[in-house]
């Protein structure tokens, strides 16, 4: 019995074969799909719908990469990863790219051996209070009871912020999200704190969203973005420019619906974007129509945002183009 088991494991070991002997791009092209690490379930970012199909902003990032590499956004396989699994999964080569609402920090960028290609959602920790308390600013929260989940940077940011502003607070620390929310909605605490994206989706999912306000102060920077492994610049470039192509397309007004018509326009920038002129695809090591395929099949950043996050009550905020008062800024495609 043991021998059979050993044999099974052995076959699986060597049957899986060497995936990363060459560059990631070649390996991905050879196997025919992008293996994308996503969140197990985070509404708006990566979440299977009732039919079991993955949807979300991070999922669209995966699809964009597949569209760039294969010209087919469906050539993605998703590996749902939990918070502890995500980094080993990328390090070991189990996934080719990690698009899992992961905060870009110096530790992760250096010692963990990753490269963050950019930011596809600027998040940050905020506060939500019941409207009836009539609080307008986090500076008024002195002495408040705060509901918070333990073990994350959220708790540390919270105490740092209150200490820096010479205020005190009483923490109500509860591990499970659902329970900490129940505590807040039952009035056990005055304030609930987590990332603003979390506050928005929570507020939208409970009755009477208008009874709760999210305070303007954002007390931490949580830039979420896709990451790849160190040491493969070509793959890094492809993932990075897949993201930038989506942002650039929004700035140029190219959408999945109008890109076919726009392709006929004489605008040299559009001609470059769709790959009619310039050899950007070739420079990246993919088809020249890579950016056209991304926009045609996945859509630009704004479309993805509207499809996935707007229904949950998210506002663009700082995740708006730099031309419209946000901080999304893609280097030029030329």
């Amino acid at each position: 019995m043991k021998r059979v088991l050993g044999l099974t494991i052995g076959v699986a070991l060597f049957g899986a074969g060497a995936v990363h002997a060459q560059g990631t791009l070649e390996a991905v092209q050879k196997k025919g799909f992008v293996q994308c690490g996503v969140n197990v379930g985070l509404a708006g970012f990566s979440q299977p719908d009732s039919r079991g199909a993955w949807k979300g902003l991070d999922v669209d990032m995966c699809r964009a990469i597949a569209a760039a590499v294969f010209g087919d956004a469906t050539k993605v396989r998703y590996t749902p990863t939990t918070a502890v699994q995500r980094f080993p999964a990328l390090q070991s080569g189990e996934v080719d790219v990690l698009a899992r609402n992961t905060t870009w920090t110096v530790t992760r960028d250096s010692s963990l051996g990753f490269n963050f290609v950019g930011v596809n959602y600027y998040d940050g920790q905020g506060f939500m209070v019941p409207k009836k308390l009539n609080i307008k600013s986090a500076k008024q929260l002195n002495g408040a009871t705060v509901c918070v989940q333990p073990g994350t940077t959220t708790e540390l940011n919270l105490s740092d912020y209150f200490r820096a502003n010479r205020m005190t607070f009483k923490p109500v620390v509860i591990g499970k999200l659902e329970e900490v929310l129940n505590a807040y909605y039952a009035g056990r605490c005055d304030v609930f704190t987590t990332d603003v994206s979390g506050l928005v989706s929570t507020r939208g999912s409970r009755p009477n969203p208008a009874d709760h306000v999210i305070l303007p102060e954002v007390i931490s920077k949580e830039p979420l973005g896709p990451a790849v492994r160190h040491g493969d610049d070509r793959w890094f470039d492809i993932v990075k420019w897949s993201l930038y192509a989506m942002i650039e397309a929004e700035e140029m007004g190219l959408t999945s619906k109008n890109i076919d018509q726009q392709a006929a326009s004489k605008d040299p920038a559009v001609q470059r974007f769709i790959g009619a002129t310039g050899d950007f695809g070739k420079m990246l090591g993919v088809d020249n129509k890579w950016s056209f395929n991304i926009i045609k099949q996945v859509g630009n950043y704004g479309e993805s945002f509207e499809a996935n996050l707007t229904p949950l009550g998210f506002e663009r905020g700082i995740n708006q183009l730099w031309t419209k008062g946000g901080i999304l800024y893609a280097p030029p495609l030329r």
Binding site: I9, A12, L13, F14, A16, G17, A18, V19, H20, A21, T79, V84, Q85, P88, A89, Q91, S92, G93, E94
Partner: peptide
């Protein structure tokens, strides 16, 4: 799920389900 892949030589992966 987390440790084993790191001990394997790079490029060799064993299916997560297995």
């Amino acid at each position: 799920s987390v440790m084993m892949p790191l001990f394997l030589p790079s490029g060799v992966t064993v299916d997560k389900l297995l």
